[in-house]
């Protein structure tokens, strides 16, 4: 009786190959049913996300179990297991436990320390419980993985700091302006980046969005999309004293905002804080604008720099995470050995 993990992940294969093995939510119940019909498999859980497809199981024969599970994962398509060679991995017993604990804690994720995966592991477990493919061992193993994930997140900095450009931008806006609910945003330039930024901020609940673009039609399109207001490009300076956040991503070859234009604006705004995001390359806003009181200017490099710092910090926490995970897995394994010898 052994524990086993067979799977494929973002670390071993690109998305084109992972998606061929992906189980959708609809497929999962029947797949779990088929899993129990595989000889040598006593208990099993299928974890299927966009970054990984893995089967966790309890098997009676290691060699046969591994083979059968690989074929199961490859949907028994002839020759596929051979093709996937080197991309499919297998972990046994303590390694399998350590792997699950790493996955649940977000340590093995593409974005190190992300927390979404824990919810996905929980759901995978619940699906298996519903399909009655879990027993005492899988039940205990998964409960321990949730506990370990919680402990790792609490006792290390693995989940600290924002690690995407948009989440960093939103967190900065909140740090400067407080809540974003009654804030007004101006978008200069109607490119893809602006659209993304507008969407993120709308999701955060900003009260209104003003869009200005060299081509007025394009500005209107974007304004309609976000329930905003389109403004002719020559007129946008008139609206600058009404907004709290300006996101600039025009194709202008030179600065469109300088210290000279923003300084009188701040007086007009009665020094209300202004958050400027310059995501254009080449830049739209003269960096000297940041020297003005109550103006906070960030360009794309600043945001990416913060992301990088946070990622480095999280990676620095990995050693601590591993040692916690190892401790927890040892404890689980001693329980597992007892169960095994009593059967």
């Amino acid at each position: 009786m052994n524990l086993i993990t067979v799977g494929i992940s973002h670390k071993t294969a690109p998305i084109e190959e992972r998606e061929a093995l992906f189980f959708s939510g609809k497929e999962l119940p029947s797949a779990l049913q088929r899993l129990t019909e595989v000889p040598a498999v006593q208990e099993g859980v299928i974890l299927s996300t966009c970054n990984r497809v893995e089967i966790y199981g309890l098997i009676s024969d290691t060699k046969e179990g591994e083979e059968k599970l690989k074929h199961f994962l490859c949907r028994n398509v002839p020759g596929r297991v051979g093709k996937m060679n080197g991309k499919l991995y297998t972990f046994l017993d303590d390694e399998s436990v350590i792997h699950l604990f790493k996955v649940a804690s977000g340590v093995d994720s593409m974005v190190v320390g992300e927390s979404e995966i824990l919810g996905q592991v929980k759901q995978a477990y619940q699906e298996a419980v519903k399909a009655q493919t879990t027993g005492k061992v899988m039940h205990t193993l998964f409960q321990k993985s949730f506990q370990t994930a919680k402990m790792v997140r609490q006792q290390t900095g693995i989940g600290k700091g924002f690690v995407s450009v948009s989440s960093v931008a939103v967190s900065l806006a909140k740090k400067i302006l407080g809540g974003l609910a009654d804030r007004k945003v101006m978008i200069l330039g109607a490119g893809e980046m602006s659209q993304l930024a507008a969407k993120t901020l709308r999701d955060e609940g900003v009260s209104s969005i003003v869009v200005s673009n060299r081509s007025y039609d394009r500005a209107q399109e974007l304004a309609v999309l976000f329930n905003g207001k389109a403004v002719h490009f020559e007129e946008y300076p008139r609206f600058m004293n009404q907004v709290d956040i300006i996101i600039s991503s025009t194709a202008a070859p030179h600065f469109i905002l300088s210290k000279k234009t923003v300084a009188p604006l701040m007086k007009e705004r009665k020094q209300r804080p202004l958050f400027l995001l310059d995501i254009a390359v080449p830049r739209d806003i003269d960096p000297a604008v940041n020297e003005l009181d109550n103006v906070y200017l960030y360009d794309i490099d600043d945001l990416e720099g913060i992301v990088k710092e946070n990622v480095t910090y999280r990676e620095g926490q990995l050693v601590l995470c591993y040692s916690l995970i190892e401790q927890k897995s040892e404890r689980f394994m001693s329980w597992f050995h007892q169960i095994r010898s009593s059967r």
Binding site: K160, K174, K175, L177, G178, D302, G305, I306, E309, Y313
Partner: peptide, 14 residues
């Protein structure tokens, strides 16, 4: 643009 590693205190400037 040099933010503290463990994040800011819970308050905003506002």
């Amino acid at each position: 643009k040099h933010l503290p590693k463990l994040g800011f205190l819970p308050w905003s400037l506002e």
